[in-house]
Design a protein around this nucleic acid. Sequence first.
RNA 1: GGGCGAUUAGCUCAGUUGGUUAGAGCGUCUGGUUUACACCCAGAAGGUCAGCGGUUCGAGCCCGUUAUCGCCCACCA
Length: 1028
Amino acid sequence: MNNIFVTNNIDSNLELPKQYDPSAAQLRWSKYWDDLKLFYVEKNSRHRGSKGAFCVVIPPPNVTGALHMGHALNNTLQDIIVRMKRMQGYDTLWIPGVDHAGIATQAVVERRLFEEEKLTRHDIGREALVERIWNWKEKYQARIIEQIKGIGCSCDWSRTRFTLDTICAKSVRYFFFRLFEQQLIYRGKRLVNWDTHLQTAVSDDEIFHETVEGNFWYIKYPVAAPNPDEPEFVIVATTRPETMLGDTAVAIHPDPESALDKVINELKKRIESAAEKDKSELQKELDDIEFRKSSGLLDNLKKLVQMAKNGCRIKLPLTGRTIPLILDTWAKPEKGTGCVKITPAHDPNDYEVGKRNELPMINILNKDGTLNSEAGIYKGLKIKVAREKVVADLEKHGLLHSVEERVIELAHSDRSKTPIEPFLNDQWFVKMESLAQSAIDTVKNGEVKICPERYTKGYIDWLSEKRDWPIGRQLWWGHRIPIWYCKNATKSEIEKAFNNRNDISWTFDDENKTWRICSLEEDLPKDSVEGYELVQEEDVLDTWFSSALWTHSTLGWPDTSDDLDYYYPTGVLITNRDILTLWVARMVLAGKFNTGKKPFHEVYIHPKILDKYGEGMSKTKGNGVDPISVIAKYGADALRFGLAFLTTENQDIRLMLDFECPECNNVVEQTKKNRVLPKIQCPKCKKYFRTQWAENAEDKSLPEGMMINERFEVARNFCNKLWNAARFVLLSLGDRKLDSVTINKSLSSQLLEDRWILSRLSTVTRSVTQMIETYHYADAVRLLYDFAWDEFCSFYVEMVKTRLLDSGRRLVAESILVYVLCRLTALLHPFVPFVTEEIWQRLRVIDSSLEVSVSITGWAMSDNSVIDLGVEEQFKIFQELLRAIRDVRASRNIPQREEISFSVKCNNETAELLKPMEKYFLSMSRARVVSWGELAVPTEFSATIPLTGMDIYVDLSGVIDAAAEAAKLEKEAIRLEGFIKVKESKLSSDFIKKAPQQVVDKEYQSLAELKEQHKSALDAIQKLLKKT
RNA sequence: GGGCGAUUAGCUCAGUUGGUUAGAGCGUCUGGUUUACACCCAGAAGGUCAGCGGUUCGAGCCCGUUAUCGCCCACCA
């Protein structure tokens, strides 16, 4: 790249604006990077860097909609690592892409279809719906990529993948096939969470619970043939009375008395150890249960146990069916009536009971949420209607014992927001036993490291449950399950068709009397088995099934290639904590299973972006903020810098974003109400502005209200500061050029400020590198912020100003300025790529040996020989002194223009150190030194500042107010006395015996210094008082 | 019910293996157009580190406990 002549379009005569213009820089340098293909990695390139490979795969955003600030954070953090690694000399590849997000995307498109055309998916059919979703995907993929590019991410765009594209599809089929061959895939009847609105099963992870007002109905089930001394009814309680139509038993505990005793004992134990405030509640619970024991309830249950043993049957109301009374420990005598109705086809726990007791499973629901013929006269009714009717009918027959009002936690589908109905359905599963174990081991043995470490527990706990993975979805948008059914064929006929093929695998399904044929090919011809027709499975695969392969499918697995060899396993996966299990864990097990290798070395879990109310951002809440709107206001660099600034180890990021009225710049607070509106009226100027939700043409024509936030403002100001530091250097140099020889020679300058800034640069470089490598983003940013602003700008630049005016001395100063600015720019580049490139390109005009882009320049490695902690310490004293003098000037209202003079009483050693700094007091605070050292004395009218190891006397002839000075010192003396007291008592305690000698010595020294300062203050007061 | 995290200046947050007088930005106050920057410069004020108890010579940091908030998981006839 070095040898290619590249023009950066920087005209050296161009005027340098006082303010950095982010949008111009973003446009210019995005294009420049793209034109030079700086972030592209040639396919299967044989020319690899000496440092090796570093690859990152993007957590593919869902194509459901546009990205919000959470994605901005995620991508910023990845880009920081990626850019640093690239600069460090690794072959760095960042693979971008998007996820098809099966349920979510289909739901969005279906909803729109209905809203706009009043059509359902069944109206238009599978092919047409899928086509519409593809159109949606194209639109949002483009938008998402545009957003990621806008943030400045350095991805290899030529490798953009989509989880449903042909490359990923091939990986999916191979993964499925391998699992199938190893008999890790099975199909079974299974209770699923049925979304009656979307008519699909959703996983446990895709449901949420919401409290709703409900009822608790007590229903009387008549005993079929009661003996005279036996109860006539069994009473059961339920929140879903309509499910009684599918009941196949009533259960009671086989030994209710001991079960109650056990609960009582446990409760008693808990009361003993419980907190005071919880005790009364627990006691109430205990009383209630003990009452059950003493009341007739227990006796009744005991009778029922006996009846169950005698094979008693119960008449199911409204249907006339009889069902058994069974014994099962699932029934809890401490709860409800102690009897529980069993509906195996519609309740997870009842399902288990049903399996244990070999009960029939009666499904009463259709897929659309209406009742089926099993429900008898209730057939065709919606659940809600059926419930009302069942209750009314029970009441009519006198079988409704009582009704209680009650709030219940009802499961809802995350996607459709409608209630979930547990539903028995055919489903495909992956056996997790061995797969989960491999993923557990990979983390336990340290092969994959999760940072911060505390997330490891959640990962392992989740996998340890080893619950089989339901992988089928009753959807149209997704990878079609590569299974074909063939009924009635004989074994030999199947063998005849496929025996020679290793891309086909099959098993026989006894229950449905059909062959299941799994193929590696995308399509298996219908007539593959002579004389029979093959039918492909309708269902598609869970989205996570394809995203689990993301680290290797993006590199072309199962096809082998140099790229797969070289870039896999990837370096780090940077993601959100909510998908640590759903995605990360499955990537580990799939990676291991498919390639034998872990998918990545490290996982970094970053904080969550919250809004001002502490809530996570989501589309439904409408509190998601488009990063592009922040970029429009502050620039991409400010967005990135601001986000990185807030990325600390264990705190989520709260972003207080408000609107700014485009008409009058008034700040309009963002509230829960207005954040979802397409337009907002400014309360001050009464004019409307649009928000990101503007849809119709009228709203869209309004001016946009920008999102404003203090953190991004700080970040923008920093970028501007950096820009101006560069501007200063560039203006100082004018048309003059510097060559690398001159610059390198200057680095051995012995001037204190030069040694200091170079030493600090090295120290900072070392720390920043280490911080980024361990994902301590905020620490790195803060350090760079302070170094750039306080040390480079406020001190170094200010100090060299006088040298720059001296043509004899300016060359070294300029060289070091340019050098430090280059290195600083490089260090900041991963955080703020655009402004640093803007500066870099202008520096290239001065020093033509610089790389064509800062993004591929060498990472500034810390040179230990330059680090001089002695010099850094010396400089600290200088800074402390300068601050004290400036304080005197400010607090005594001495105008900046007026020169003051001062003396410093200190030991000769300190005086020697400070001597070379004399001129800087003059240039930086218009303060002239009269004398240094042990003999220094205050003038007749002096302010005295006692510091550690030195007293400063600032001559204030003419301005001094002796009484006021004395009062100031009095205050100081009291403050010092306080510290002295504390120290003295500390040094007369066990401290001196038990603390390490080093610490004790330090305390003694500190006490001595304080006493000296105190004495200085008292002396000065004496002198001042004489004058009044 | 189980787990994780938090509580530090008016606000938003840092605070390393326990060790001098707990830091920053914003806001507030004072003073400044000094040959990069008012998106700036110089300075100041402002804190019983949520409460209680413990360990220690010494606690913002370690342990226990209480309170409040957030997140995740599980369960509820």
